[in-house]
């Protein structure tokens, strides 16, 4: 470890911001820049990408010579189960239909906590599904298919 203090969080932040700026800048390459009188679709994004890169660089440079703050715990388990829930719902809501897709999404999300026992998670998912179906599908009349084409035999 080097003797000089540095704020690792801000180093990472600066690098990520610059990476984002490069990504947006690269995406504007195909767009017409135009002139400042008649700005093309690429003009404003190009300016912003440049600005973002500059800010990222400043954050990066200022990170040196400063003490790091503790990063804290990371919710790996939370990320592993919370984030897939809406994605899974999105992938299956058309095919399986609203009711099974929601049930499975709630079941996935319920796994995010170590404290919820599997059986309780199952019960909770069933309750959530029934309540949501009653409220959103029957009550508010949202135009979702309750059971989709994948389940029609």
């Amino acid at each position: 470890m080097s003797a000089k203090p540095k704020d690792r969080t801000d180093i990472a932040t600066g690098l990520l911001l610059m990476a984002a700026a490069v990504f947006f800048g690269w995406q504007t390459m195909g767009l017409e820049i135009g002139t400042s009188l008649r700005m093309g679709p690429g003009y404003f994004p190009m300016v912003l990408s440049g600005l973002l890169f500059l800010l990222g660089l400043l954050v990066f440079l200022k990170a040196f010579g400063r003490e790091d703050e503790p990063f804290g715990k990371v919710a790996w388990r939370g990320m592993a189960f919370i984030l897939p829930a809406p994605v899974f719902f999105g992938l299956t809501v058309r095919g399986l239909g609203f009711v099974p897709a929601l049930f499975l999404a709630a079941l996935i999300a319920a796994q995010a906590s170590t404290r919820l026992k599997p059986l309780h998670g199952l019960v909770l998912a069933v309750i959530v599904t029934i309540a949501s179906t009653l409220i959103f599908s029957y009550g508010l009349g949202l135009p979702f298919r309750r059971f989709g084409p994948w389940l029609q035999f």
């Binding site: 999404a105 709630a106 995010a112 906590s113 404290r115 919820l116 909770l124």
Partner: peptide, 13 residues
Amino acid sequence: YILFPIIMAMCSI
């Protein structure tokens, strides 16, 4: 842990 599966379902819908 009871609340967030409910919140996730609501958010998705």
